[in-house]
């Protein structure tokens, strides 16, 4: 809805601008400042130009190598959880009840994992999956499966992926459920009359009508998983070795562990740019599908 222009509105927005300036723009400028300098501590800084960035983007250097390894790990992680959570979420949404008391019950159960703080999720799984005392870890080993997330890369990855799927599939499912609920009954009736199979109903009615919420789900899950920090930090601390060291974990190691402020600043800027670029792509795709609807004068 468009509203008549009123200049006094700027007055009301001004405090927000001030807060954003202090909370976001100033820190970012500090980071930009660090990224072009080197320091050996003692608050002594030396001009380094674009040196850190050149090193960062060159995989043959130590910094570049470690950056790209972490970036690939991040991308792989996001791809894996999206490939699992999106289809699984759709499947869960499709099998959720449509009416009656079961709806409320299901929604509450589904929402539970979403309400648990990240570090608690990490802790729960850290205990649950421990090979010595955890129910899952102990159980798997008892069954003869060699499972140890602190020592074995594959075990660590599987644990993190399963943990994320457990934590976040509900979100995808709930979004899809909302999309499904908005489809009028007449569509299903028409499809039955047209003799459509279950699969045809899914591809011709449900999937197209869920397109918009799915885009939102994919965007949310991608951003979240791409910036994942707390859960793997609590669970594996980035190990074994560097096997689960994602960009955010590496960044913290670099900045707080090694106190390489310049390198860390450059890395965080590039990290930030990647996130922004992906956001922009999604935003463009979503507004385009939105305006197609608006052009036809259809209610959303």
């Amino acid at each position: 809805m468009e509203k008549p222009i009123n200049n006094r509105a700027w007055l009301l927005v001004a405090p927000v601008f001030l807060i954003v300036a202090f909370s976001a723009i100033l820190p970012i400028m500090t980071v930009v400042n660090y990224s072009v300098q080197d320091t050996f501590g003692n608050n002594q800084f030396f001009w380094n130009g674009l040196g850190w960035f050149q090193e960062l983007l060159d995989p043959s250097t130590e910094l570049g190598g470690r950056f790209f390894a972490a970036l690939w790990r991040n991308l792989a992680f996001s791809a894996i959880i999206l490939a699992i959570e999106v289809p699984l979420g759709i499947l869960v949404a499709l099998s959720m009840p449509r009416e009656g008391w079961k709806v409320a019950a299901t929604l509450v159960v589904m929402a539970l994992p979403l309400l648990i703080p990240w570090n608690v999720v990490g802790t729960i799984w850290q205990v649950f999956a421990r090979a010595d005392i955890g129910l899952l870890g102990y159980g798997l080993n008892w069954l003869g499966i060699d499972y140890n997330y602190t020592g074995d890369t594959l075990s660590a990855w599987i644990t993190i992926v399963v943990m994320d799927v457990w934590h976040w599939t509900s979100l995808v499912a709930l979004l899809c459920y909302a999309g499904l609920k908005s489809i009028p009954d007449a569509y299903y009736q028409a499809a039955r009359i047209d003799g459509a199979s279950r699969w045809a109903i899914f591809t011709t009615i449900q999937l197209p009508k869920m397109k918009r919420v799915l885009l939102i789900a994919v965007l949310l899950r991608f951003m979240d998983s791409f910036m994942i920090y707390t859960e793997p930090f609590v669970l594996t601390g980035g190990g074994p070795g560097n096997a689960t060291t994602f960009l955010s974990i590496d960044l913290v190691k670099l900045a707080l562990g090694q106190f390489d402020l310049g390198k860390a600043a450059a890395m965080s800027l590039v990290y930030n740019l990647i996130v922004l670029a992906v956001c922009w792509v999604f935003y463009t795709v979503m507004t385009n599908t939105g305006s197609e609807r608006a052009d036809r004068g259809e209610p959303a």
Partner: peptide, 23 residues
């Protein structure tokens, strides 16, 4: 139905062919 039900992603031709294809 009261409100038009068409398969949004399909062309008119595909819409008309849909019940036959299913059969």
């Amino acid at each position: 139905f009261q409100f038009p039900v068409v398969y949004d992603t399909m062309t008119v031709r595909e819409n008309l062919a849909f019940p036959l294809k299913n059969r």
